[in-house]
């Protein structure tokens, strides 16, 4: 019985021929990772730190990646987790951080991004994943590790908030 199980494990290991490459992954997905980190942190400095951390982790976990689709999901999930840890650490420190940003993005009075940035953390994440990346509610639930109902309620609350602040734009 044990030999049968071991053989099964070995045969499963051979089925996926996909080999992830960190440099190529960076080329294809660094923008996505950076944008999630930027949305969640609110500034480019923290987004830089989070992005670096994510790709360094990828290098150590390349063998776990089974497909291109899995790679993207993995990167998104880890970026969310990394920014969670980042902010939990800030909460424990209980300080207000003054961050100098090295980039300024031009926005006009009709820009929507500042209103999205002002949303609570979970809400702006689902807004990004739904409206920018095009993920469905169930896919977002898997990526964020929450119930689909939670994703729906976050999207709903985000839309309510954006309707108030964006008025005709939404």
């Amino acid at each position: 019985m044990l030999m049968l199980l071991l053989n099964l494990a070995e045969s499963n290991a051979n089925l996926s021929n996909y080999k992830a490459d960190a440099a190529l992954a960076f080329k294809n997905y660094s923008d996505t990772v950076f944008r999630i980190a930027f949305l969640r942190s609110g500034n480019t400095t923290d987004a830089d730190d989070i992005m670096s951390e994510v790709f360094l982790r990828l290098i150590k976990n390349l063998h776990k990646i089974k497909s291109e689709e899995h790679l993207k999901s993995w990167l998104i999930r880890v970026t969310i987790n990394r920014s969670n840890s980042f902010f939990k650490k800030q909460k424990r420190i209980n300080q207000v951080r003054i961050v100098e940003c090295d980039a300024v993005y031009e926005m006009d009075e009709n820009s929507v991004l500042p209103q999205v940035m002002a949303l609570p953390m979970h809400q702006k994440t689902v807004v990004f994943m739904h409206y920018f990346e095009g993920y469905s509610v169930e896919e977002i639930a898997t990526l964020c590790g929450v119930k689909a109902g939670t994703v729906k309620s976050r999207l709903s609350r985000a839309r309510e908030a954006l309707k108030t602040t964006l008025k005709g734009e939404f």
Binding site: A23, D31, F34
Partner: peptide, 27 residues
Amino acid sequence: MFKDKFKKELDAINPSAELESAVLDKI
């Protein structure tokens, strides 16, 4: 309308060239 604007504005948010170079070096 919101979706298009959001995509356009967020498309402009990218990591800096210096950061990209630094991360690729680390990789």
